Amino acid sequence: MTRSRKARESDIDEIALALPRTTKVPGWGGLPSYQVSKKFFVGYRSPRPDALDAETGERLTDVLVFRVPDEGDKRALVQGDGPWFTTDHFNGYNAVLLRLAHLGQLTRDELAEVIEDAWRSQAPKTVVRRWEDERLS
């Protein structure tokens, strides 16, 4: 079995826009944000005091936010051995964070799984069912 290649920034756009009813809208700083039926599911976030570079102490400018289905999924990603993290600002909010600088630690397939789960968590149930049925046929 061939392993998926390392994820690239362009994969975010490609994966997200392949999902039904997804639109790309300008988010923080004009960087892309993705919505399904006007609900956010992945995108960049503004630099905040709760996410600092460990070496310089400066606010991180390359942080992406991914919605997750629930707290269990969030915990699994953050506590796993991948590059996912969270901050106090996201306590009680079903989302995980990823630095763009660490995107290559994921395979494209891993990135696709998280983006698709983010989309599923926000898309209308009928749209999700139809999309899943089409993938099975």
Score class of each variant (00 low, 15 high):
75 R>D: 09
60 L>V: 15
84 W>P: 00
108 R>V: 13
42 V>I: 07
49 P>K: 11
28 W>G: 12
18 A>Y: 05
20 P>G: 09
82 G>H: 07
78 V>S: 05
42 V>F: 04
75 R>Q: 07
46 S>G: 15
113 E>V: 06
71 E>H: 03
88 D>P: 10
7 A>C: 12
10 S>Q: 09
2 T>D: 00
72 G>M: 09
40 F>R: 12
65 V>T: 06
19 L>H: 10
11 D>K: 14
76 A>E: 08
48 R>A: 06
137 S>M: 05
79 Q>T: 14
6 K>Q: 11
39 K>S: 12
122 Q>R: 14
100 L>S: 09
90 F>I: 05
119 W>S: 02
52 L>F: 00
77 L>N: 02
102 H>R: 08
8 R>S: 14
96 V>G: 01
71 E>T: 04
57 G>K: 05
63 V>Q: 04
20 P>C: 01
93 Y>P: 00
20 P>H: 06
118 A>S: 15
33 S>L: 02
107 T>D: 05
32 P>Q: 15
7 A>R: 14
3 R>Y: 09
30 G>L: 03
41 F>Y: 13
109 D>M: 10
11 D>E: 09
126 T>N: 08
68 V>C: 08
134 E>D: 05
99 R>P: 03
35 Q>R: 15
68 V>D: 11
124 P>S: 08
43 G>W: 03
68 V>A: 09
106 L>P: 08
34 Y>G: 00
50 D>L: 05
74 K>L: 09
95 A>V: 08
109 D>L: 14
57 G>I: 02
66 F>K: 01
126 T>Y: 05
8 R>N: 11
123 A>V: 09
88 D>C: 11
9 E>F: 13
75 R>H: 08
109 D>H: 12
2 T>M: 13
7 A>N: 14
104 G>N: 07
119 W>K: 01
59 R>Y: 03
59 R>C: 03
79 Q>H: 13
86 T>W: 03
49 P>E: 15
131 W>R: 11
86 T>R: 12
106 L>D: 04
26 P>F: 04
77 L>I: 04
108 R>D: 11
61 T>P: 06
10 S>I: 04
1 M>F: 13
136 L>I: 08
21 R>G: 07
80 G>R: 06
103 L>Q: 08
90 F>Q: 08
49 P>H: 10
131 W>L: 07
57 G>D: 03
40 F>A: 03
22 T>Q: 11
137 S>W: 00
62 D>N: 15
102 H>L: 01
96 V>F: 02
61 T>G: 15
82 G>V: 06
96 V>T: 06
134 E>M: 05
63 V>N: 04
113 E>F: 04
109 D>V: 08
76 A>C: 03
71 E>V: 07
8 R>Y: 12
21 R>P: 08
15 I>Q: 03
133 D>H: 08
68 V>H: 05
40 F>Q: 04
48 R>N: 12
17 L>W: 10
32 P>I: 02
6 K>W: 06
106 L>R: 02
122 Q>C: 05
106 L>M: 11
121 S>V: 10
